[in-house]
Computed example of a mutant assay.
Amino acid sequence: MLKEALAADAIIPYLGPGLLRQSSAAPPVPDGPEGVAAALNTRATAPSKIRSNMWSVAQFIEQRRHRRTLQAWMAEIFASSAPLTGLHAWLATLPLSLIIDSWYDGTMRAALVANGRTDVVEIQGVTRANENRDIWTRTYDLSGKELRPGPAAKTVLYTPHGSVRPAANFLVSDADYVEVLTEIDIQTPIPEAVKARRTNRGFFFLGCRFDDQMLRIFARQIMKRSNGPHFAVIDAKTMTKNERRFCTECGITLIDLPIGEVAAALVNPA
Results as ranks from 00 to 15, higher is better:
residue 90 W to Q: 06
residue 90 W to I: 07
residue 91 L to S: 04
residue 92 A to I: 05
residue 92 A to Q: 01
residue 92 A to M: 01
residue 93 T to F: 08
residue 94 L to R: 13
residue 94 L to K: 14
residue 95 P to L: 15
residue 95 P to R: 15
residue 96 L to H: 06
residue 96 L to T: 05
residue 96 L to Y: 02
residue 97 S to D: 08
residue 97 S to I: 07
residue 98 L to T: 08
residue 98 L to E: 05
residue 98 L to P: 02
residue 99 I to M: 08
residue 99 I to P: 02
residue 99 I to R: 09
residue 100 I to T: 09
residue 102 S to C: 12
residue 102 S to E: 12
residue 103 W to P: 00
residue 103 W to L: 10
residue 103 W to T: 05
residue 104 Y to R: 01
residue 104 Y to G: 00
residue 104 Y to E: 01
residue 104 Y to W: 15
residue 104 Y to K: 03
residue 105 D to Y: 07
residue 106 G to C: 04
residue 106 G to V: 03
residue 106 G to Q: 04
residue 107 T to H: 04
residue 108 M to W: 01
residue 108 M to K: 10
residue 109 R to H: 08
residue 109 R to V: 04
residue 109 R to N: 05
residue 109 R to P: 00
residue 110 A to G: 06
residue 111 A to P: 06
residue 112 L to M: 09
residue 112 L to T: 04
residue 113 V to N: 01
residue 113 V to I: 15
residue 115 N to H: 13
residue 115 N to G: 13
residue 116 G to N: 09
residue 118 T to F: 02
residue 119 D to Y: 08
residue 119 D to P: 00
residue 121 V to P: 03
residue 121 V to G: 02
residue 121 V to I: 15
residue 122 E to W: 07
residue 122 E to H: 08
residue 122 E to G: 01
residue 123 I to F: 06
residue 124 Q to I: 07
residue 124 Q to P: 04
residue 124 Q to C: 00
residue 124 Q to L: 11
residue 124 Q to N: 09
residue 124 Q to M: 08
residue 125 G to R: 02
residue 125 G to Y: 06
residue 125 G to A: 08
residue 125 G to F: 05
residue 125 G to W: 05
residue 126 V to G: 00
residue 126 V to K: 04
residue 126 V to H: 02
residue 127 T to A: 08
residue 128 R to K: 03
residue 128 R to N: 10
residue 129 A to Q: 14
residue 129 A to N: 10
residue 130 N to Y: 12
residue 130 N to S: 12
residue 130 N to G: 07
residue 132 N to F: 11
residue 132 N to H: 11
residue 132 N to C: 11
residue 132 N to I: 09
residue 133 R to P: 01
residue 133 R to M: 13
residue 133 R to Y: 10
residue 133 R to C: 11
residue 133 R to K: 14
residue 134 D to W: 11
residue 134 D to A: 15
residue 134 D to F: 14
residue 134 D to P: 05
residue 135 I to M: 11
residue 135 I to F: 09
residue 135 I to E: 11
residue 136 W to C: 02
residue 136 W to A: 01
residue 137 T to L: 07
residue 138 R to A: 03
residue 138 R to G: 00
residue 138 R to Y: 10
residue 139 T to I: 14
residue 139 T to F: 10
residue 141 D to K: 11
residue 141 D to W: 11
residue 141 D to R: 13
residue 142 L to F: 08
residue 142 L to Q: 03
residue 142 L to T: 02
residue 143 S to A: 14
residue 143 S to Q: 12
residue 143 S to H: 13
residue 145 K to L: 12
residue 145 K to S: 11
residue 146 E to C: 09
residue 147 L to A: 01
residue 147 L to T: 04
residue 148 R to T: 08
residue 148 R to I: 09
residue 148 R to G: 05
residue 148 R to D: 13
residue 148 R to Y: 12
residue 148 R to Q: 15
residue 150 G to T: 13
residue 150 G to A: 15
residue 150 G to V: 14
residue 150 G to Y: 13
residue 151 P to W: 07
residue 151 P to L: 09
residue 152 A to W: 10
residue 153 A to L: 03
residue 153 A to V: 06
residue 153 A to Q: 04
residue 153 A to W: 02
residue 155 T to Q: 06
residue 155 T to Y: 01
